[in-house]
Design a protein around this nucleic acid. Structure first.
Length: 896
DNA sequence: GGAACTACGT
C-alpha cells in the first residue's frame, strides 16, 4: 500500500499557468472564486485519500479540472500524499475533455515527485498523444527510466493513430531489444504499420515469432498477419495461411478479398466472396463494401450498382462507405449525373454523407467543370456544417478553380480555418491553369513561408504552369531548383511535366533530350512518360527511338497496360514499321477496340488496303463492334483499293448495322473515295447534300481530287470554301492563287499574292529530314552551304533526273504546294535521296525521310524511279501522306 | 495500454 503513495514535497508548487483567454471549457476565474468561498478545501483537509478521489472525480466529470488541480495544490501545501491513481484519473479527465493545458499543469506537478510511478508516466504519454501532441508524448517516453508493456503500447498506439508507420515499426524493434515482449493487443497495431509501410520483412518476423515462439496466437493476430501478406500483394502466402487457420471469421475472408481487389484481380475476389457463402459464412457490411468499392473503382459501376441492390436483399443496409464508393466510381467514369442522383438518393434515405462523400461529389463537379452542380454541393456542405472540413474546403477550391471561378476559389481559400498542402496546390494550380502564372508564383512564394511548404506536386504544378505560358526557361529553372531550394527530390511526374511541356511547345528535340537525361539519372519512366514521349517519335526519322522506348517500356513491364501497347501499335505504324505494329497486336491478349482500330488505321496509312479489309473481317468474326474510327478506316481502305461501291455500302449499311453516328470524318472519307476514282461531280454533289455543314477537311478532300484529276475550276471552288473556313491558311492561299493563274483569273491571282505579301507571311520553305547512321540530317531548299558533297549531289541528281524524265509520260500543268524547281534550287527531299544514296559503298535498303510540305509530282516520280533503279525502299511522309516507294511503285498509288 | 477488413482530394 505504502509504495503506491507518492510523497508530495513540502515546498509550494508553482502557480497555475493557464491564461485567462484559454480556449478550454474551464471557467478558470469562476472556479478560483468558487475555491475561495467553498468549503471543499477544508473538507479535504483531513479526509481519507479515497474520499478525495471521489471528490476529484466528480469535479473532473463536471469539467472543473482546474478546481481539481487547485485541490491537489492545497493538499501539497499541507504535505499530504497523492496516490498515483489520483494522478491517473486526473490525466484521464484531461484526455476526455481534451484539455492539454491542465494536462501540462499536472505534468509539472508530477515532475516534482521524487519517484514517479511508471503507470502515471504512461498515462502522461497517452495524455499528450491523445491531445494531439505526439512530440511531447515522445519526450516523456524517451525520458522514462522504467518502461513496461503498457508504456510501449501507449507510445506505439500513439504513433499508429498519428499514421507514423515507420516509427511504429522502429519502436517495436526497440521494445524487443529492451526485452519487453508484445501481447496480442499490440501485435495487430505493429502489423498494421507493416502493411501500410509495405514492410513484409517485419511481417514475416512477427509471423515466425507467433508460429515458433507460440506467442499471442489469436484470431485478431492471425487476421493481422494475413493482412500484411495481402497488402504486400503476397497472395500465395496469404492463401496458405488462410487455409491453415483453425478459426476464421468474416474479417479473415475480408482480408483475402481485399488483397485480390487491391491487385485488381476482381475475379479472384468474387470467387472468395462466393466461396465464403458456400462455407456458411455470411458476408458482412464491410465484405459487401470491399467488393462494391473494387468493382466501382475498376470502372464496373453497373455491376457495383447491382451488388448494392443485392446486399439490400440480403438485409444489409448500405452505409456511407457503400454510397461514397458508388459516387466516386461513377465520378471516375465521367457519369456525373448518376453520381449526383446517388448523392440525392443517399440524402433521401437518410444516410449522412461525410467529408469524403462530399469531396467526391465536388470532384465530380470539378471534372465536368460544372459550377451549378458544384455550388449545390457547396450548399450541402454548408447545411451539414462540414464546410470547415479541410478536405471539403480543398475539393471546393479545386472545383471552383477548374470551373473557372477563381474568385470563389480564392475566397474559400482565404476563409479556411486551416490549410494544408492540398489547399495551396489547388489554388496555385487554378491560377496556373487559367494562365495567371504571376499570381500563382506569388502564392508559391507565400506558401514557402507557410506551415505547409511546397511539396513535389507544387513544384510540378508551377513547372506545368510556366510551360503552358510558354516560359520554358523559367520552367526548367524551377525543375533545377526542386532539389536545392525545395529540399525534395524530383519524382517521375516532375520529369514528365518537363517532357510534356516541351512537347506542348513543339520542342520535340528538347523533350527527347530530357527523356534521355531522365534515363541517365536512373529515374524510371512510367506509363505517363511513355505515353507522353511516344508522339514525339511517331515519325519516320525517329523509328529507332520507338523501338528504344518499346524496349524500355517492356523492361519496366509497362506494356502490360493495354493503353501503352495500343500506343505502340500506332507509333510503330506511324514511324514506318507496320510489321512491328502487327507483332505487338498479335501479342496482345485481350485486345480492345482501340487495339484493332490502331492496327487498322496503320494499314490504311501504309496503303495496305487488303490487310486492312482482312483485319476488318477478322474483327467482325471475333464479334467486335466497329466504332466510328473503324468505319472511317474502312471507307479509306475501300477508297485506296478503288472499291467505290463497297465504300458506299460501308458508309450507309455498316453504319446502320452498328448504329454508328456518321460524322464529318466519315463524310470527308467519302469525298476522298469519290474524288479518288475521278467522280468529281459525284463528290461535289455528295458535299452539297450533306446533312451537316462541310468542314475544311471535306473541302480539302475535294481539292486533292481536283489537283490529281486536274480540274482547276473545281479546285478554285473547293479552295475558296476552304479559305472561307480558314482564311489564314497560307497553303490554301498559295494553291488557290496557282489555280487562279492556271484558269486565267489573273486579277484574283494578284489579289492572293498581294494578300500573302500584306500579311508578311510566306509559304514555308521546303524542308526534309533523313535519318542515317543514328543521325538526323536536315535539308532546306536554297541553303546550299550546309549541304555536304554538294557537287557530287548535284551531278548525281542531274543524272537521275534525266533517267526519270525518260520514264514519265505525264508532264502537264499542275498546282503544287512547292514552287517548281529551277536550276540551283532543288527540292529538299531530292537532296535527301541523293545524300542517302551516294554516301555509302553499299546502297542502304531503306531510306526514311520526313518532309514538311506535300511532295510534288516530279519528286514523287524520282522516288519511284530510285526505288526501282537502286533496289531500295523509301519511306517518305509528307504533310499529307505516308509514301512507301518500292520496285518503282508507291503505296499511295499516285494519289496523295 | 487496448487490436484485424471498406470510401477521398492537388
Amino acid at each position: 500500500m505504502e509504495k503506491n503513495l507518492i510523497i508530495l514535497p513540502s515546498k509550494p508548487w508553482p502557480p497555475l499557468l493557464i491564461p485567462s483567454h484559454s480556449s478550454t471549457q474551464l471557467e478558470w476565474h469562476g472556479s478560483t472564486r468558487a475555491l475561495a468561498n467553498s468549503n471543499s478545501v477544508s473538507m479535504t483537509q483531513r479526509s481519507h485519500p479515497k474520499l478525495v478521489d471521489t471528490q476529484l472525480n466528480q469535479l473532473c466529470a463536471n469539467g472543473s479540472l482546474s478546481e481539481a488541480v487547485a485541490i491537489l495544490d492545497s493538499l501539497a501545501q499541507q504535505g499530504s500524499k497523492v496516490r498515483p491513481i489520483t494522478f491517473m484519473n486526473l490525466l484521464q479527465a484531461c484526455i476526455d475533455k481534451d484539455c492539454i493545458l491542465v494536462g501540462r499543469e499536472l505534468h509539472t506537478r508530477i515532475g516534482l515527485v521524487r519517484k514517479v510511478n511508471p503507470f502515471v508516466e504512461t498515462k502522461l504519454v497517452s495524455m499528450y498523444a491523445k491531445c494531439g501532441h505526439l512530440d511531447e508524448a515522445r519526450k516523456v517516453f524517451d525520458e522514462m527510466r522504467e518502461r513496461n508493456l503498457f508504456t510501449w503500447s501507449a507510445m506505439i498506439g500513439a504513433c499508429s493513430r498519428d499514421l507514423k508507420w515507420e516509427e511504429v515499426v522502429e519502436l517495436f524493434y526497440d521494445m524487443m531489444q529492451h526485452g519487453v515482449l508484445p501481447d496480442d493487443f499490440l501485435l495487430p497495431k505493429v502489423l498494421k504499420a507493416c502493411g501500410k509501410f509495405r514492410d513484409i520483412e517485419t511481417g514475416r518476423l512477427i509471423h515466425s515469432l507467433v508460429i515458433r515462439g507460440g506467442m499471442c496466437s489469436s484470431l485478431h493476430v492471425n487476421n493481422s498477419i494475413l493482412a500484411v501478406y495481402a497488402k504486400c500483394g503476397e497472395m500465395s502466402c496469404a492463401e496458405k495461411i488462410f487455409r491453415r487457420m483453425d478459426e476464421r471469421n468474416c474479417v479473415s475472408w475480408n482480408v483475402i478479398i481485399t488483397g485480390y481487389c487491391q491487385r485488381g484481380e476482381i475475379e479472384q475476389a468474387q470467387k472468395y466472396f462466393d466461396a465464403m457463402q458456400e462455407e456458411g459464412m455470411e458476408p458482412g457490411l464491410v465484405t459487401w463494401n470491399i467488393l462494391i468499392a473494387s468493382y466501382s473503382q475498376l470502372g464496373h459501376c453497373d455491376i457495383a450498382m447491382d451488388l448494392m441492390r443485392k446486399m439490400e436483399s440480403f438485409g444489409i443496409t448500405p452505409d456511407v462507405y457503400t454510397w461514397t464508393s458508388m459516387i466516386s466510381g461513377f465520378t471516375q467514369k465521367g457519369r456525373i449525373n448518376e453520381a449526383f442522383d446517388l448523392l440525392r438518393d443517399m440524402l433521401i434515405v437518410g444516410v449522412e454523407p461525410n467529408s469524403i462523400t462530399i469531396a467526391s461529389a465536388a470532384s465530380a463537379c470539378a471534372s465536368v467543370k460544372s459550377l451549378s452542380m458544384g455550388s449545390e454541393i457547396h450548399s450541402i456542405a454548408v447545411k451539414t456544417s462540414m464546410v470547415d472540413d479541410i478536405l471539403i474546403g480543398n475539393s471546393l477550391i479545386d472545383m471552383y478553380a477548374k470551373g473557372g471561378d477563381l474568385e470563389a476559389a480564392q475566397s474559400i481559400f482565404d476563409v479556411m480555418l486551416e490549410r494544408d498542402v492540398y489547399s495551396w496546390n489547388s489554388i496555385i494550380g487554378g491560377y496556373c491553369q487559367a494562365g495567371f502564372c504571376g499570381k500563382a508564383h506569388e502564392l508559391f512564394m507565400k506558401m514557402q513561408e507557410s506551415d505547409s511548404p511546397p511539396n513535389v506536386v507544387t513544384w510540378n504544378v508551377m513547372i506545368t504552369g510556366f510551360m503552358q505560358n510558354g516560359d520554358e526557361d523559367e520552367a526548367l529553372n524551377l525543375f533545377l531548383r526542386i532539389e536545392k531550394d525545395g529540399k525534395i527530390k524530383p519524382n517521375v511526374a516532375s520529369w514528365n511535366s518537363l517532357i510534356s511541356g516541351f512537347l506542348q511547345n513543339r520542342q520535340k528535340d528538347k523533350a527527347l533530350q530530357i527523356f534521355r537525361q531522365m534515363q541517365f539519372s536512373n529515374m524510371a519512366p512510367n506509363l505517363v512518360t511513355v505515353l507522353t514521349i511516344l508522339p514525339a517519335c511517331t515519325n519516320l526519322v525517329a523509328a529507332k527511338k520507338v523501338k528504344e522506348i518499346h524496349c524500355c517500356a517492356t523492361r519496366r513491364n509497362l506494356v502490360s497496360e493495354l493503353s501503352v501497347s495500343n500506343t505502340f501499335i500506332d507509333s510503330y505504324a506511324k514511324s514506318g514499321n507496320i510489321m512491328y505494329s502487327r507483332k505487338v497486336f498479335d501479342g496482345l491478349s485481350p485486345k480492345d477496340i482501340i487495339s484493332w482500330n490502331s492496327l487498322l488505321s496503320g494499314y490504311v496509312l501504309h496503303g495496305c488496303s487488303e490487310s486492312a479489309l482482312d483485319l476488318f473481317d477478322q474483327m467482325r468474326k471475333d464479334g467486335l463492334h466497329p466504332s466510328r474510327v473503324t468505319l472511317t478506316s474502312i471507307i479509306s481502305a475501300y477508297s485506296h483499293a478503288e472499291m467505290v461501291d463497297e465504300g458506299k455500302h460501308a458508309f450507309s449499311n455498316i453504319s446502320e448495322e452498328y448504329q454508328i453516328r456518321l460524322d464529318l470524318e466519315h463524310y470527308s472519307a467519302m469525298v476522298y473515295l469519290l474524288g479518288r476514282s475521278g467522280k468529281l461531280a459525284k463528290a461535289l454533289e455528295f458535299i452539297q447534300n450533306m446533312p451537316v455543314e462541310p468542314n475544311s477537311s471535306v473541302w480539302a478532300a475535294l481539292l486533292t481530287a481536283c489537283r490529281i484529276h486536274k480540274n482547276f475550276g473545281m479546285a478554285i471552288f473547293a479552295g475558296e470554301h476552304m479559305l472561307e473556313l480558314d482564311p489564314e491558311n497560307i497553303i490554301t492561299q498559295h494553291l488557290l492563287s496557282q489555280a487562279y493563274s492556271v484558269c486565267g483569273k489573273s486579277w484574283e491571282a494578284q489579289k492572293m499574292t498581294k494578300l500573302e505579301k500584306e500579311k508578311f507571311v510566306k509559304m514555308p520553305v521546303g524542308q526534309s529530314w533523313i535519318e542515317m547512321n543514328n543521325m538526323v540530317h536536315t535539308f532546306v531548299v536554297g541553303d546550299d552551304q550546309s549541304i555536304p558533297y554538294l557537287d557530287k549531289i548535284h551531278s548525281w541528281l542531274k543524272r537521275v533526273g534525266e533517267n526519270v524524265k525518260a520514264h514519265i509520260s505525264d508532264n502537264g500543268l499542275r498546282i503544287e504546294e512547292e514552287e517548281k524547281e529551277n536550276i540551283g534550287s532543288v527540292h529538299s527531299e531530292k537532296l535527301a535521296f541523293a545524300f542517302g544514296l551516294i554516301d555509302f559503298h553499299h546502297t542502304p535498303q531503306i531510306l526514311r525521310i520526313v518532309k514538311n510540305l506535300r511532295m510534288c509530282r516530279d519528286c514523287h516520280d524520282t522516288a519511284k524511279y530510285i526505288s526501282l533503279a537502286y533496289g531500295c525502299e523509301i519511306y517518305l511522309s509528307d504533310s499529307n501522306c505516308l509514301h512507301h516507294f518500292k520496285d518503282g511503285h508507291c503505296s499511295c498509288r499516285d494519289y496523295w
